[in-house]
Design a protein around this nucleic acid. Sequence first.
DNA 1: TTATTTTTTACTGTATACAAGTTGTATTTT
DNA 2: AAAATACAACTTGTATACAGTAAAAAATAA
Lengths: 236, 236
Amino acid sequence: MKDDPKSRKADLMEHLKVSILTLRFQPGTDLDEALLSYEFGLSRTPLREVFRQLGGEGYLDLRTNRSARVSEMSHTTLRDFFLAAPMIYGAVLRLAARNATLAQIEDLKTAQLAFKSALRSGSAADRALTNNRFHELTGEMSGNVYLLPSFNRLLIDHARIGMTFYRPQTAKMTENLTEASTQHDAIIAAIEANDEAAAAQLAEEHWNLSRDQIELFVMPDALDVPLGLSPLSKPA
Amino acid sequence: MKDDPKSRKADLMEHLKVSILTLRFQPGTDLDEALLSYEFGLSRTPLREVFRQLGGEGYLDLRTNRSARVSEMSHTTLRDFFLAAPMIYGAVLRLAARNATLAQIEDLKTAQLAFKSALRSGSAADRALTNNRFHELTGEMSGNVYLLPSFNRLLIDHARIGMTFYRPQTAKMTENLTEASTQHDAIIAAIEANDEAAAAQLAEEHWNLSRDQIELFVMPDALDVPLGLSPLSKPA
DNA sequence: TTATTTTTTACTGTATACAAGTTGTATTTT
DNA sequence: AAAATACAACTTGTATACAGTAAAAAATAA
């Protein structure tokens, strides 16, 4: 078990990511450089480099001469989220079905087992993180460097939004989680069969389910149209 | 004319971006921390922070214990590019038509004037940069934080690919540049009229033109299939 | 000579010290 | 008492020095 600065830096990055994804660090929270550098046995120099990187990935908002802040989630971002997510994820899953390697498919199956386990006996954070891992893997499968930046940005807020409904409080919500797991299985099958159309279709259904789940929670008014699908599938 | 470290840092960032976009720094080039910090009067600490940020934005590839390197453009990335670009840019222009403010439209018109001027009398770099600016503004207009990461990543390579054909060498290529400018005008009109469908349509045409222009150039073994259109739009 | 090991050199990564800027508090002025 | 100013405490940003690591050069063995 080595404990060199490099691994402490990786620890810090992982800790921050998980804390943000699970809402342990709420959106808008200020981060204390001095405290974190003390806790992780790092000087401020590498710490600030980590901040920069997490800023670029969308976890943090950086402002000059002000402390780094966990990126916000306003009502507009939620709207933007469901505008972009079906489109990006549809394309990602399409490409995943096209390009996935056998090894990647095995990893995805493992991740899905972890997700199911978290649904049975895990905490809300476990569910959000294992679900996040599942989707991250589909991103890797797509292997398109131009889609991944947006996709990974989406996953951050997907996990954070998810944290609100991975604590099911009604029968309907529990049912939705089971349905999500079933969809994951179908996604794996579609990828394994190289069935791009099925994968894209499942992507749409999966995000519609997410939207329904959230509407049971935070969304007062429903979204008009599933924007973003048409530009892809329907050549004008 | 202030010359504090903060502005030198901004200068450095701008210089690196422009150098990379215009191929002054070729893809794969190693960056010399010592030299750059000397040239910009900065110590390595802020310099490395800039590197991290540019890494996150897709300008640089960062590898531990190795020098930062201008991000590569392989044949696969070109393929991925034309797979993702029409979709992302279609969505961006759609949203731009929906959300653009009057002030933003004015900025876009100004940018288009600069682009036209560069077409008449500018260098290839001027053309790539003014075109890049035009597209950046459409990204701002869309105002969707989840689309912008991929969109801006696309614009980096769009500028770099463009550098190869903003130096027209045949009548056909000059004609294509004029056509691109005409499309820009049409894009402005569509945005101004809040015509989402027209904007999305123009996005597709604009990227098809880019693809044609590139095929006149860097693709020796002309692409088998007009990749990026059919695979995504034709459900398997 | 060629292959392998050792030593040197150069560069990347980190820590600490210092400078600049921001925020909150106390004092002064009206 | 309220507002404005000045001061103090704290935080962020930068520079320099040092430690760790990889590549290159030199030296040794086959």
